[in-house]
């Protein structure tokens, strides 16, 4: 399940499919404001692309591209982005998560600033969800032998 597969068809399809899935994931995150979707769904789709990578290309190769450390940092980073957005609002003098004051540092009026603030947190959610889902999957599928490289 997690060994590298040598089947050329699968490998090629994955090579084509994975970037497409990732692109779609990014689209879902970015376009969550106007259509169904958002950080969580997009993050899951991104994670799915990595899960596919693990299944098709093997854990070793995946880990070379998306290392354990990077994964861990990403999972923190996402929530950090979220909390920091809120914190910025606080520093700018409004209540926590009151994005309208972000207009002071963003080129937008208060209403539009809310839009951008939401975008920033959606990105945060997406990053965390992606990283955590990947790490959860790898941990569960290898029974925690993540670090030993199987």
């Amino acid at each position: 399940m997690i060994q590298r597969t040598e089947n050329i068809i699968i490998r090629t399809i994955c090579r084509i499919l994975i970037p497409a899935i990732q692109l779609f994931g990014l689209y879902v995150i970015a376009h969550g404001h106007g259509s169904p979707g958002g950080g969580f769904q997009g993050g899951c789709i991104l994670a799915a692309s990595f899960i596919l990578m693990v299944i098709a290309l093997g854990l070793e190769e995946t880990k070379r591209r998306f290392t354990e450390k990077l994964n861990n940092i990403f999972s923190s980073l996402g929530v950090f982005v979220y909390a920091w957005t809120g914190w910025m609002c606080l520093l700018l003098g409004a209540n926590f998560l009151d994005y309208s004051v972000l207009s002071a540092i963003l080129p937008a009026d208060p209403i539009k600033a809310r839009y951008l603030g939401m975008f920033s947190i959606e990105v945060g959610v997406g990053i965390t969800v992606m990283a955590v889902m990947v790490s959860l999957f790898i941990d569960l599928v290898t029974g925690g032998k993540h670090g030993e490289g199987l």
């Binding site: 958002g38 899951c44 569960l140 599928v141």
Partner: peptide
Amino acid sequence: AVDVAFTEAAVGAGVSTAFFIAAIYQ
């Protein structure tokens, strides 16, 4: 509830099932 459905598709049918299978595999 399109958003919920989308999430459900990504999580329930996708990732969550993958988790279960991974754990049962172990």
